[in-house]
Amino acid sequence: MKIILGNSHPQSLFAQRIEALSRQKLFACYQCGKCSSGCPMAESMDLLPNRVIREAQLNNEPALMSCRAVWFCSSCFACAVRCPKGIDIARIMEAVRTLQMMDGKSITEKPSCEDNGTLPQIALISHFRKFNM
């Protein structure tokens, strides 16, 4: 999908909503990828965490509104702790989840009962948060 920018395409409306919800500076991210390299859930994500931020910088609303990666984020905060620019990526993930839910677009598949035994505790807690919205 081509990104169109310029006069008739205000660049930052969607990005600004994410910034307002997460209270994080999107444009502080210089795309080093440290968040993605250490994310325990990265393998299951359709967009790596740094790509989620990149799409937000690019104001790519369609990509983020259909992105499943944010639902795999277990809010373990490994990315936030390690980010060299002090960005709390988990909060950005949460902002995108919120925007998707406000749009009535929750696309989560609940984990099957067999998975429950192996899910890490923190994932269970974050899922609890997600499924109770």
Binding site: K2, I4, R51
Partner: peptide, 20 residues
């Protein structure tokens, strides 16, 4: 206007900017 064709290799997307 000027149309600029570029790419953003970080997101793997083509970029088109309508510039002044």
């Amino acid at each position: 206007k000027l149309v600029v064709w570029g790419a953003d290799t970080l997101s793997g997307r083509q970029v088109e900017i309508e510039a002044d």
